[in-house]
Each structure stands twice: as structure tokens, then as C-alpha cells.
Amino acid sequence: MPEELLRAQNLEKHFPVTKGLVLMKTVGHVRAVDGVDFTINTGETMGLVGESGCGKTTTSKLLLRLENPTGGQIYLEGEDIQTFTGSKFKEYRTQVQAVFQDPWSSLSPRMKVKDIVSEALVVNRDVTQKDAYDRVKEVMEQVGLAPEQAELYPHEFSGGQRQRIAVASALASSPKLIILDEPVSALDVSIRAQVMNLLVDLQQETGVAFLLVAHNLATVRYMAQQTAVMYLGKIVEHSPTEELYENPLHPYTKALFSAALPAHPDDLGEEIVLVGEVPSPINPPSGCNFHPRCPFAMDRCSVEEPVMKDMGGNHLLSCHLYD
């Protein structure tokens, strides 16, 4: 039985929409994340897929505590992270790290690689600079770079190498969870495979868990043990990855899969073309969020909000079609 590392419970983040400058009035809320539950297990990868604006990035910001939730809790090994303060909070920062999409903007151009990689240690663990550099050498080798290269600046590296540096700096504090926000989409096709293989190897070596935020379904298939599909701030389907890819149930998941590009000109499968675009999260549709675009919408879909049900084998689904 895999061990639970992090659990989000009914997680919510509503951003106020305000009007006026001096006498600010709240006229509505952007429901970026609207009641999300999931569990990430130790040493496993959870994939989070969905289109832009579905709340993937806000969810990862909440886990990093870069944003505070407006409702719900996040537990790391059973402890509510909102209660962390002072040194406990600094410790949390070393436990949960992140790698972002664009290695051209996520690394400071004015810092040497060794200082970028050791920063999380020096700031959060009060390690002396010298001890930190020893750790830098270790992680540089782990990510496939030469330890001497730590003396260089980021501009002296190629895109794939920069992403390796970003991974090294996330890894320096031996975290339990790394949030990977589109870690390969800014890289060239031939380099993507290098970085994805590296991440899979590191997970096996160090037992770190990943939350993989991505829009490329094949990337998630390759790396994640379980996958959650988000639409407009909610998780609509969540299941072990293999089961989800072989047997997608939610109409949105099906549409997403059918929109994925084929690997061969002859495997153009059934195409579900969705009409229209994702509605505004300020005034989400009533009932099921997806009903205005759903090809199978029924009367009750616009009235009644579906609840998450287990369809067997941990395949969670929120859709009226399968009642």
C-alpha cells in the first residue's frame, strides 16, 4: 500500500474581482480552484491535466504556499500546512520544491549556478555556504552536469542543461515533493526525452514524489502513476493513469484525448470536437461546469452538480452519465 505524502481536501481559491479604486467593491469571484481533493503518495507522480485557465497552476501555487487557499486544507504527512510558521514553515519550503516551465526566466542571470542551486539550503536550512557547495557538487552530478560547471552563469548553458540546473536546485534540499509545472514544454523535442528520462531516474534514486502539471497527455502517460483531469477549477476525473488512458469515462476527458495528436497518420480515431471555449470562471455554468459544451448533456446536468463517485478500482468520476 503506497504511503500518503500530501493530501488536499476540498481545496478552494477564489480571487475577488473588484471595482473602483478607492472604495473597492467586490463584484464577484474568479473560482480558480473550486473544491479539489487529491492525494499524492510518497515516491509517486500525480499528473494534473487540463486546458489553460482550468486551475492547474493555482493548485500548484497553493501547494507551494505561494497563495493561501480561501477554503479547504492541505496536509503534508498529516499536518495542516496553513498552521506552519517560523522555522517550521522554512522547513516546509525545503520539503516541497518546484521546477517551472521556462528555464530562461526561472534562473537568475546574475547568479552563478552554484549559488542558484544552493540558495534553498542557505536560506531555509541555515547551512553555511561552504557545506552547501558540497551538496551542489553532488546534485550537479545527479542531474548529469559536471561539478565544475557550477562556477558558470546560466547563459553559458543550453535550454536542456538549464532545465537540469533547475532540477538540481529543486533537488538540493532533498525534498519530498517537487512540483513540475510544464517541465519540458519549453524544450526542443529531442531534448525533452533527455529531461523526462532524468526525472524518472531521479524519482527512482531518491524516492521524491512529483506533481506533474502538463497539457501534453503523452508526457503524463509516460511519467505519472495517477492522473487527474481538471476543468474550470474542479477535478472531473481521477484515476490510476493506465486505467484512465484505456478507459476514459468523462466526456471532457474523452474530448481531450481525442484532440491529442496522433502518432501515425493512420490512427485518426473517433473525433469529439467540442463546441465553443472554456466559459469564464467568474460565472461558471450552473450544475455541471461542462454541460454547455458537453455533447451528451441531459436536462439534469444544467441543474444538479454531479458528485465524485468511485467507478471501481479507484477510478473517480464526477458525471451524471454514469449514474
Binding site: S190, A193, M196, V200, L217, Y222, A263
Partner: peptide, 11 residues
Amino acid sequence: SVPKMDRTDRL
């Protein structure tokens, strides 16, 4: 080097 939807063997 491109990951496929139906395969998980090493890239």
C-alpha cells in the same frame, strides 16, 4: 524520442 499515448517504455 516523442512519448506516445499508448506506451510507457523508456524514451
